[in-house]
Design a protein around this nucleic acid. Structure first.
Lengths: 206, 206, 206, 206
DNA sequence: TATTAATCGAGACGGTACGTCTTGTCTTGGT
DNA sequence: ACCAAGACAAGACGTACCGTCTCGATTAATA
């Protein structure tokens, strides 16, 4: 799924002119620039991408089998780095994770790319799978680890389903980010979600 | 956004051959049939839709301004009816609402159409808005009403943010339905989400 | 080989918008204009022809299966009309026929087209055959008729091979026209060829 | 026009690895093999020639500036040697010359190459000129010499135009060879052409 | 014997054209 | 006024070649 789909060579022997990494970057940067400039994803033809990057069409097809595969790498390049967990408590760690998610949905470049390409990739199951495996899954695992530690530390009920809980924690931010583009993502959203969940929904007295 | 974009006539006077409603149904049914047959959304050209429905291309353009507008109506036609709330308690109402959401993500026809068209529409803000306003928003209001009644009945803490809570309730199911296509949606998912949230996450003793 | 390769319809029933004859003419005229302007045949891409004629590529492919087929029709359109035979004698008729051949090789538009397309067509046996059958053969028959009448009238030896003789008469002009592009075609060439042949090559006394 | 276009060095000093003559032959042989195998000239890309000859593209471009120049050398290599004239009489010499021409148009390898490359070269005036000067012209001069000797020997009328006569002699065979690919070239064609011309066309008595 | 420089096969590179497909508009003749 | 059919200009699709440009690896003649 990464660049070098039509592998240039299986063994180590390199023959012929090697592929230029600069070209690779130029293409991905070109796509990002177009998306940031507000060009609708539907108008992102390979022809136009090539024109923008000052590159021949074949040079694109030599690396990616089509638009979708290219977009996977564009997303990967646009993906912000993993957040640094404070480790002071489960609650704090969750807030940091959620906050990273919230920010990702706001930031200019990332946001424009994310919203568009995300939607696009959904139409292609195996591409989605590739993105899921290399981007989503590691983050998900990060969240599950935090929750597991929380359960072990006694911050969490012992009988809770961690997988489900992870979806519950992450759900509201993801929903607001990707499915309700007009929804606001206030600064304290991460905190409020985590604290609301921890406090429980029942009235205080009981 | 609805059919009859290029309105046939503003006033009441009807002149010439009236538009055939059968044609309208044939087109929408045709799109659904193709999607159910596993035709990828990307291969759904207007040309092919017209061929499948045995209809001229102009007849489609006379009703919708393009593929996306047509898809909005296809989604609307595929949307399952609103669930009937039992009204016995907030908890029960929420479970029924969530269960409807879960079912929508499973059902064959609906599911295939949903996943595809949903993704597609995300690329077009105003189309997404149209879908949001006529399909998502009413459901959302239904959920908010249930929560509001719950708060009034004392089933909910008084200081909770209903908007946020609604996203928390709906989030996990939506995430599993639309963003993790391989995730399982077990029969008791709705119940477990609602009960997990109501019980709170803290260990019992305190 | 003619226009209308992908026949629009076999029976008489005409359905859909009929093909525009104006477009047909515009395309053929466009090719001629380019050739007259000195554009080398090798640079006559379908893409360029379409651009010049202000026509979509598909519109060309709808009529001809490729460049070569199109060129057959261009040649046909550029072909000068059959000459009018005086009928006063075999000698005079032959001179007129040869003179027509000579002129064809001189005339600006025709000449440029002829030389180029002629060469091009040679690479495609069946296209050459098509051109041969509809353009060359009728002319050839005209020549054979003249010779046959000459033999019946006693202007020709009875034992002569008419087919061969026709090639002998036509040969020198054709060679100078098509194979020695720099050769001159003097005004009296036709007369001189015919008279040289009629007089024989032997010295007068014998 | 010959190999060594981008001359490897002007002065005598030879530095670096010298060009391999074997490579040169391999390329020309490769082209001939492809043509004999019935590959249409239009499909003879430099890319394919290089592939067939097991040679890098640059190695071809180092010797010839393009396809056409390469073809000139291919033709030269395929050209049969000059015929040996008996010298017994003008008539016999002409028959031998014509017979050589006829054979050239028949022979397998030569014929396939001739017909194709001949046509191709016509589109490029200066290439045609090169071929004309080094291949056609010497043959033509050979014919003119024979005719001149014939006139001096009294085998020919003194007032005949030798240039024109040469075209008349050569014309029919050339026409049948290059312009009527389906025409037959019977064994006695050369004799019949020469004798027909010598006998004259008029009836015997007069 | 080492150095040097042009050669070699391989294949990447920016372009252009190929022939096919879809887009949205525009005629047709018929309902 | 509507309909199905299909022509039309425009332009993207993915592939093939164009002629140029690196690569690492030969291959002589020179130093």
């Amino acid at each position: 799924m990464s660049p070098a789909d039509t592998e240039p060579r299986q063994d180590g022997t390199a023959r012929g002119r090697p592929r230029s990494e600069a070209v690779e970057r130029a293409i991905i940067e070109g796509v990002m620039k177009l998306l940031e400039d507000g060009v609708p994803l539907a108008e992102l033809s390979i022809e136009r991408i090539a024109r923008t990057a000052g590159v021949g069409k074949a040079t694109i097809y030599r690396r990616w089998s089509g638009k979708e595969e290219l977009f996977v790498d564009v997303m990967r390049a646009a993906e912000p780095p993993d957040p640094q967990l404070p480790g002071t408590s489960m609650r704090d760690d969750l807030v940091v994770l959620l906050e990273a998610l919230r920010r990702r949905g706001l930031a200019g470049r990332t946001s424009a790319i994310l919203h568009n390409v995300h939607a696009q990739m959904k139409s292609s199951p195996n591409l989605w799978a590739a993105y899921h495996d290399t981007v989503i899954l590691p983050r998900r695992r990060l969240g599950l680890d935090v929750l597991r530690r929380g359960r072990e530390n006694g911050e969490l009920r012992a009988d809770v389903d961690l997988e489900l809980l992870n979806d519950i924690v992450v759900g509201p931010v993801l929903v607001r980010t990707l499915m309700r583009p007009d929804a606001d993502l206030p600064d304290d959203l991460a905190e409020r979600v985590v604290d609301t969940l921890l406090q429980g929904l029942r009235p205080v007295n009981g």
